[in-house]
Design a binder for these strands. Sequence first.
DNA 1: ATGCCTGTCTGGGACAGA
Length: 259
Amino acid sequence: MKIATFNVNGITARLPRLLEWLGEAEPDVACLQELKTSDETFPAAALRDAGYSAVWHGQKGFNGVAILARGDDLVERRRGLPGDPDDTHSRYIEATTHGMVVGSIYLPNGNPQPGPKFAYKLAWFERLAAHAESLIESDQPVVLAGDYNVVATDEVGDIYSPRSYLNDALLQPETRSAYRSLLEQGWTDSIHHLHPGEPIYTYWDYFRKRFERDAGLRIDHLLLNAPAAARLRSAGVDKFLRAREKPSDHAPTWITLAD
DNA sequence: ATGCCTGTCTGGGACAGA
């Protein structure tokens, strides 16, 4: 069982890369973020032709999350996080498939900080933690996968160098503390668990030759509750896709679970 | 010291991203 998360940075512009990656990597489940398109314009037919059913929560121009699955039914169980009916951003969708609960997460970036965007990030993080608390004890495997917009530490496993990101919302103590609190509920950070300290990045800025220099960040994470973690076998990043024409600035990040 | 790129909506320039 292969489960992936991929911030596509615009599913319309990224459709060729997305389709070729689905064909090559063959994930059973794929969480997508930053669709940047409305519900009406989501390319469901092209994905269906590629063998994937989908649930999605779009938004015109920015945000937007989806879950794709093949080989089993995919049933949406929630769109949006509880706790703020006035939140208009499309940043969370949750479904059941293959006997698991899967959440696709696009946590707010939060820049510039301090400011209202950073406050929104921290508030959204609290709502995510409250919802995660309701999932952690599930007897079913639960996978919360997505772009958390958190660099967990200053260590080289998480970021090539913190120097040019010191002021960034992704590295702030409040952001890291929120992520740590979430993990302390009992979630396993898949890549960190299997590859502690290894520089395995999931995002590289488009400019300053950041990809060519492997000057990356690990901000896309797959969090597992105990029944899922017990089945964790491997984890990695499909860095090859970031090297192709018109790539996303993120690369697909994946785990495999024992069947 | 800095979105230096990129996508989207739009129709040229702003906004968002990290």
